[in-house]
Design a protein around this nucleic acid. Sequence first.
DNA 1: TTTTTATGGTCAC
DNA 2: TGACCCTAAAAAT
Length: 277
Amino acid sequence: MPEGHTIHRLARDHRRKLTGGPLAISSPQGRAADAAAVLDGGELRDVDAFGKHLLYRFTTAAGEERTLHVHLGLFGRFRPRRVPPPEPRGQLRLRIVGAEHAADLSGPTACALMDPAEEHALLARLGPDPLRADADPARFLDALARRRISIAQALMDQSVIAGVGNVYRAEALHAERLDPHLPARELGEDRAAALWMRIAAQLADGVEDNRIVTAPGAREKPGRVRRSEAVCVYRRTACWTCGGSISSQKLVGRVLWWCPACQPAAGVSAPASSARR
DNA sequence: TTTTTATGGTCAC
DNA sequence: TGACCCTAAAAAT
């Protein structure tokens, strides 16, 4: 589930549904018992999202300001619940129950209190997040210009750009007709700026839809569109745009998907060079 | 029923 | 680069 759009959507939803009143906070599974004990009975003031990280700003029942850091990782999920919530099923790391809304968190990579120093260190190693109004695209352009790694690898590096995951990487590169193997530094300012804009737009759509829909026209009929029909290249066999065969390759532990026809290597007939990985 | 896979990330070698 | 962490559902047996 979680790329940056999921995280920002959760921040928005939880800000709206869980702030403004005392919360019962527990860790049925016990693995976040310490944080739950501190936060139980407190109030949520705000929720911040940075890339794939969530920061929940609490005022505890004792009147202290504390921040809960949540990172969903690959498997983490926040599920909305009615009040009262049902008996916990499966592994439930954290349960937050307000007067009208509740939320269950399972499988996160991180769910722990974070002090200001740790938060500072976290934010310092994150690149700009296109979903944040305070994001500086110049940092993205600079990072790309300095990297020898491929653009595909660069987009997965959260210190280059925060919030992009494996689906948006594939879809944004396809939308910009960029060969994923192109070295980041060879992108050039114009194409890098266009890529930033594309990612920002796709992520923003993702927040609104609460899912990734990048296939042209598919957003107009949400709910009816299967995932495979909502994207152009990710985990597809045929390109949504041209119908050609989609290529895939394991790259640094993740599968990269692209359309060789829509995203040709610069100078296909040129002598084999470092362009291909 | 078991195995594999997944939209993520860290750490040790 | 691989081991590992976390959970659930799909795919394979």
